[in-house]
Write a protein that binds this DNA or RNA. Structure first.
Lengths: 254, 254
DNA sequence: ACCTGAACACCGTTCAAGT
DNA sequence: ACCTGAACACCGTTCAAGT
């Protein structure tokens, strides 16, 4: 973690929207949602609040921009190297991934894993994406995700009239499941670095087993699955399940 | 809307956690997420902040409790009458719904529609549920939802080892899609009461059509589906799709 | 055009003091 | 045990003033 190379200590170059967004991402990464304040930002950028407000309308816009930057990088990079937030605009089609996937299913998996990694690396993304999704998919970030999944749904041969529903189902699942996974990582970290993720999941699983048998029979029954599960495998299994549903409902598909 | 009968103007009865949570829900309903402040709360309850802090640890706990109360009511009531927040603990099994559903699929639809209605009536629920989901499903609200969907997944005959994944997929979809729907309603209201929901969707659809054809070919293509869609039908179609996936992957099912 | 930084209104939370 | 309310630290945002 923390592959970031250059600290923004060179106060020379002028303030810009990108520098501000970059600093915002760093603050969010370092201290979570509560870490992004205008005081912290002014200190890090060695300016006054007025300077920031000249480049950015308000905190909400800053949050949206930070989310957008990280998601755009994740969508462009794919699974493994979702690390760099902004940087090189590059050619957006550069064939980065090890063995670039070709079937629509593989591409969906690839997009999903890219987001999965990004959320895992920037836990604040989960809440932020959920919030922005809940505000409607007209905003750029969620629209970007919707678009890239939707293209593959179309490539899958899903009939026009069902593409909206199918894409929504996939997007909701991907964001929700990836967020939950990040929450597990984040919660595990809460207990200190000596607690491994496996130990945390074991403890959480144990807590589920101690729920009231009358109120939570199902949750108790699947407690073992919480303990034993392989994050990525489980995540991909969920996607496969939804894709199977799409194929089942629309035999023309695939 | 606003079926609430009794205003908490009788200052007689002592403060209690329930009264505080009830007031919090009213503030959230009336003025959105920003409407819940301790000042507004003290004014409405005619006390000082210290009194509230005696019953409730902090604002976060209050938010969780408000969410919990509304969701619990929605899960207990089912589709149509998710109105009352707390009130009568009743028998939790009381056969309320018009013609109570019996197959697991019908029950899942019923639970989902209940949440759908609750989120539509309390738009702040969408963000709140998403946030609490993203913090992991060990919290009571999301666990409650997970449990009630999970029971039906089990009743469906899904093999043990896949119940966790299947339930997660359903819960994520339901919460995400319901939230998005509420966002549409809320955004429509933003433009004033003279703008109908249909007009708003038409405008949003138009905005999608005007996106850059190179960047958003898919989104442009499904813009009509955004305009024409029937909320509930679309929502249920998504659930059906995931259920079809579950059935397809696990032939034993159903 | 871009930046400074004091000031404002408001927020969640605390705590000594009352009953 | 339960409540009061002044006070504290901190927040997002504004704006007259500088360059």
């Amino acid at each position: 973690m923390a592959t970031r190379t250059r600290r923004p200590e060179r106060r020379e170059e002028p303030l810009s929207r990108e520098r501000i967004v970059e600093a915002a991402v760093e603050l969010l990464d370092g201290a979570g949602e509560g870490g992004l304040t205008f005081r912290a930002l002014t200190e890090r950028l060695a300016t006054g609040p007025g300077a920031i407000y000249w480049h950015v309308a308000n905190k909400g816009e800053l949050l949206v921009a930070a989310t957008d930057a990280v998601v755009a990088a994740a969508l462009a990079a794919g699974p493994a190297e979702a690390a760099d937030a902004a940087e090189s605009p590059d050619s957006p089609d550069s064939p980065h991934s090890p063995h670039s996937p070709h079937s629509p299913q593989e591409k969906i998996d690839s997009i999903a894993l890219g987001l999965f990694d990004a959320i895992d690396e920037h836990p604040w993304l989960a809440t932020q994406l959920a919030t922005q999704l809940a505000r409607g998919p007209r905003q750029s970030v969620t629209l970007r995700i919707f678009e890239s999944i939707g293209r593959q749904v179309r490539a899958l041969g899903v009939p026009e009239g069902s593409q909206f529903t199918a894409t929504s189902a996939l997007v909701h699942y991907i964001l929700g499941a990836a967020g939950q996974n990040a929450a597990n990582s984040a919660n595990a970290r809460t207990f200190g670095p000596e607690v491994t993720r496996a130990e945390y999941l074991a403890a959480a699983s144990q807590a589920w087993k101690e729920l009231d048998p009358d109120d939570y029979p199902f949750t108790r029954a699947v407690a073992d699955q919480l303990r034993d599960h392989d994050d990525q495998a489980e995540f991909l299994a969920g996607i496969a399940l939804i894709l199977a549903g799409i194929t089942a409902v629309h035999p023309a598909t695939r």
